[in-house]
Amino acid sequence: MTRPVQASIHLAALRHNLSQVRYAAPHSRVWAVVKADAYGHGLSRVWSALSGADGFAMLNLEDAIQLRERGWKGPILMLEGFFDAQELALFDRYRLTTSLHSRWQIKALADARLSAPLDVYLKINSGMNRLGFVPEQVHRVWRQLRELKNVGEMTLMAHFADADRPDGVDAPMARISQAAEGLEAPRSLANSAATLWHPQTHYDWVRPGIVLYGASPSGRWCDIASAGLRPAMTLSSEIIGVQTLKAGERVGYGSRYCASGEQRIGIVACGYADGYPRVAPDGTPVLVGGVRTGLVGTVSMDMLAVDLTPCPQAGIGTPVELWGEQIRIDDVAAASGTIGYELMCALAPRVPVVTA
């Protein structure tokens, strides 16, 4: 028998979540963000389920080439642009839209020999101070780009650091308005949080990421509980061993958990080498045989332990949901002091993946 841990990717949930994005932003086109191997879901597995989007947005050139070779003919946006001038030959060959956030990229684009102009997304620094041009530079850069024969359609692009807060887009939008004053150009500003909660940011293109996969951009499931989103990944396993503890007996490395009385403990075939967070504390939610219970003791490389007190019927072979439809990945992440994004992306290569 193979080790029972596996991840299930729910393609219907991805299609449903895309439809919810369109409901939230009915007048905008949609970039489906599939960076980080589609947030750990596997680009090769999920792209067809998201092919109802108007385009795909990503980071890695290899992923863009994979999509083209699999038959995607629509727009592809490279969110960080090209990393070396030599890559422009492939951008040209595969007709990729590039973001531009640095002067060296503009020079490289000006000097490149292309078969046809490339569409570009000019990145505005909205105050997050990662990439992009500050508002005072945007008009000058815009005029410079308009004069280049290698530049096709131009779109203004920005990002929000705090769109999960009610007032989180106010200051960035003021900066963007300053930068774009007088420019007649399409805009792409809204990430997942802005798509859900700030319709004034939607403009021509929205760029949803985490919500396509059914988790919350704020890291709190309660914030999207009414949004109609469905988890696209389930991490599941089974109980492979049972221990009955006496009062004072302990569980796992470091003896962190101590039984206060007689207690049945289930050992589950999943650990931090599978992508489950080692730092998850006692009480982190787990579903055992359809019953909600909690983690006990430190997560090991290959195993973790759960309290079987609420589910006395459980034994070897009982199914366990570690996150998915009933145990929200956001809740596991919050208990572990992180966000659902990280857990999705940390799914280990050794975990078998099935599509459902």
Rank of each mutant, 00 (worst) to 15 (best):
M1S: 15
P4G: 00
Q6L: 12
S8E: 04
L11V: 08
L11G: 09
H16N: 06
L18Q: 07
S19T: 14
R22N: 12
R22L: 07
R22T: 11
Y23N: 14
A24G: 08
P26W: 13
S28R: 11
W31N: 10
A38T: 15
G40N: 13
R45K: 15
W47S: 14
A49R: 06
A49E: 13
L50P: 10
A53R: 04
G55D: 09
M58F: 12
L59P: 06
N60E: 13
E62H: 14
E62M: 13
I65E: 13
L67C: 15
L67I: 14
R70S: 15
K73V: 08
I76E: 06
L77F: 12
M78Q: 11
L79C: 11
L79N: 10
E80I: 07
F83K: 14
Q86S: 15
F91W: 05
D92Y: 09
Y94I: 08
L96K: 05
L100S: 05
L100F: 05
H101L: 10
S102T: 12
R103K: 13
Q105V: 03
I106R: 02
K107L: 09
K107I: 04
L109A: 07
A110F: 03
A110C: 06
A112F: 05
A112Y: 03
S115P: 04
A116H: 10
K123S: 05
R130T: 12
V134N: 12
V138S: 02
R140M: 09
Q144M: 09
K149F: 12
N150C: 13
G152D: 12
E153W: 11
M154A: 14
M157W: 11
F160R: 09
A161M: 12
A161H: 12
P166D: 14
A174F: 07
R175W: 07
L183I: 14
L183Q: 05
R187N: 09
A190C: 11
A193T: 07
A194H: 10
W197F: 14
V206Y: 03
P208M: 02
V211F: 03
L212M: 05
Y213S: 01
S216E: 01
P217G: 08
S218A: 12
S218C: 10
I224Y: 00
S226W: 05
A227L: 06
G228A: 04
R230N: 02
E238N: 00
V242E: 07
Q243F: 07
V251E: 06
G252M: 04
Y253H: 11
S255P: 01
A259S: 13
A259K: 08
S260F: 11
E262T: 15
R264Y: 06
R264T: 04
I265C: 04
I265H: 02
I267Y: 02
V268D: 01
G271H: 05
A273C: 11
D274E: 11
A280P: 04
D282W: 03
G283Q: 08
P285I: 00
G294P: 03
G294D: 02
L295Y: 04
V296H: 02
V296C: 09
D302Q: 06
A305L: 01
V306A: 01
D307Y: 01
L308Q: 01
T309P: 00
P310T: 03
P310D: 05
P312K: 02
P312L: 04
I316H: 08
P319T: 01
V320S: 00
E321F: 00
L322P: 00
W323E: 02
E325V: 01
E325Q: 11
Q326I: 00
D331E: 15
V332P: 04
A333Q: 04
I339W: 15
M344R: 12
L347F: 08
V353N: 03
T355V: 15
